[in-house]
């Protein structure tokens, strides 16, 4: 195969991987916005929390690295569940302390508390883990599939870690979609997003639904942090800022409040970043991403798939 083509396919794989972890984070932004119309600026920092707390648990258990098959089937799922519960719980707690009392206050107030929570969390992480790059040991076995298993001589890199990333993120996205479309709580979430008062009148406990939304959004960000750690193997106390910025942009690009839009937006951003870093220059990547965002929003203010919120509220 032509070498240029191999590199192009390699970049598509990189773009898809960036898209998948961004999507998990973007979902939390969009769900929270959909239901309480709040940009939860602290959401990116939950991703960082997922990274640090899962690393703490791994360190405490101290399993062999990389994990053997037994470890992959027992320890890994266990840490996934604990990380998601803790991160989801943290997000619910943040809502309870910083957003819920301001539910009926002017929109600017919870926006500022969100910024405040974000800064506070980042400062706490800096104290907790230090300001340096934190290495995340290689607990997940990395095998270069095309070369080591198939013996192909190619520039395309597809590793077991890539498959692991897709294997975690895609089922989570499908599961979330199913949850929102098909379950009773999902229906209640959609109802609360459309009209909180009417939903309350229909007997839906809106506060509990909002708390659930924060929990699910946080749990997904926690899962993203854990997957990121195992996948990229390093992070930093400020990592939530960069990831949050890109994920938030994804959510807006796809149409904020729209679950499928967030996923689509994340994959588009991932692909732009991958291609721009490769074919242009990394220093132009942000120009590309935000240039496309501006152009798109000028012509489609509610994002690619449309923000359910703005359409129905108008």
């Amino acid at each position: 195969m032509d070498l240029e083509l191999q590199f192009f396919i390699g970049q598509i794989i990189v773009g898809l991987t960036i898209g998948s972890y961004l999507a998990l984070i973007a979902l939390g932004y969009t769900m929270v916005y959909g239901i309480v119309e709040l940009i939860n600026f602290a959401h990116g920092d939950l991703f960082a929390f997922g990274f640090f707390i899962s690393l703490t648990i791994f360190t405490a258990i101290n399993p062999p690295r990389p994990l053997d098959v037994v470890g992959l089937l027992t320890i890994l799922p266990l840490i996934f569940v604990i990380t998601m519960l803790l991160t989801g719980g943290l997000n619910t707690l943040i809502d309870r302390v910083a957003y819920k009392p301001l539910r009926n206050a002017p929109k600017l107030a919870p926006l500022l508390t969100a910024v405040g929570v974000s800064f506070a969390l980042e400062a706490i992480y800096a104290i907790w883990v230090g300001a340096n790059q934190v290495p995340y040991p290689n607990y997940f076995p990395r095998i270069d599939i095309l070369r080591q298993w198939f013996g192909l001589d190619t520039a395309i890199q597809l590793t077991t870690k890539d498959l692991f990333l897709f294997g975690v993120t895609i089922p989570l996205m499908i599961g979330l979609n199913f949850f929102i479309e098909r379950t009773k709580i999902g229906k209640a979430m959609r109802a609360s997003a459309q009209d909180r008062e009417a939903a309350a009148m229909m007997g839906i406990n809106v506060n509990r639904i909002i708390a659930t939304t924060f929990f699910i959004g946080g749990a997904l960000a926690g899962a993203a942090g854990l997957v990121w750690g195992l996948y990229i193997n390093s992070g930093r106390f400020l990592m939530g800022f960069e990831a949050g910025l890109m994920a938030f942009t994804s959510a807006v690009l796809g149409g904020i409040g729209n679950i499928r839009g967030a996923v689509l937006g994340a994959f588009i951003i991932g692909m732009i970043k991958s291609m721009s870093d490769f074919y242009f220059e990394p220093s132009w990547t942000r120009v590309m991403i935000f240039g496309i965002l501006i152009l798109l929003l000028v012509f489609r203010p509610s994002g690619i798939l449309g923000s359910t919120q703005s359409i129905e509220k108008i």
């Binding site: 070498l3 590199f7 390699g10 970049q11 990189v14 773009g15 991987t17 960036i18 520039a155 890199q157 990229i232 992070g235 930093r236 400020l238 990592m239 800022f241 960069e242 990831a243 970043k273 991958s274 291609m275 721009s276 870093d277 490769f278 220059e281 990394p282 220093s283 990547t285 942000r286």
Partner: peptide, 20 residues
């Protein structure tokens, strides 16, 4: 020759260009 954002956390796409 490339300048990166010092806050960036994912350099894989760029490193493929190094390889190329």
């Amino acid at each position: 020759r490339a300048s990166v954002e010092s806050t960036d956390i994912d350099f894989r796409a760029l490193l493929n260009d190094v390889r190329r």
